[in-house]
Design a protein around this nucleic acid. Structure first.
Length: 110
DNA sequence: GCAATGACTGGAG
DNA sequence: CCTCCAGCCATTG
């Protein structure tokens, strides 16, 4: 994968997520046109942690429930800590006030 | 080209 | 309310 792939699109969108905001896998997938490929978004981020640019705020990407399902995949700093640093309250694996912090690419980027 | 995989999702039981 | 199941689609072996 040297060319632009589905991954790069995901990275780009995730990078556009404003600080202090979060988005969901489904929202990204829908924005990319493949609504059903929500899993693929997570798969892309999985690679992003190893081969990705490294500046991908994957901690801002959670499942539709606002649950930090992918926190286990983070190295070093935990998701809760990173999110908390941006002003996002996290209780356990659940983001507090999630719906208000939710950010849709198709909504903001038109 | 087929089978397996995955940080998901939504509906059914 | 909780758990299970099947669809979803791109990447990889």
């Amino acid at each position: 994968m040297g060319k632009n792939s589905f991954f790069e699109d995901v990275y780009e969108v995730v990078r556009l997520v404003p600080k202090g905001r979060v988005t969901t896998y489904g929202a990204i997938a829908e924005y990319l046109g493949t609504k059903g490929s929500s899993r693929m978004v997570g798969w892309a981020l999985n690679k992003c942690n190893e081969v990705g640019p490294g500046d991908i705020p994957a901690h801002r990407v959670v499942n539709r429930n606002g649950l930090l399902t992918g926190k286990f995949h983070f190295r070093g700093r935990s998701m809760e800590d990173l999110l908390s640093d941006e002003g996002i309250k996290v209780k356990g694996n659940q983001i507090q006030n999630f719906e208000e912090l939710l950010w849709y690419p198709s909504q903001e980027l038109l």
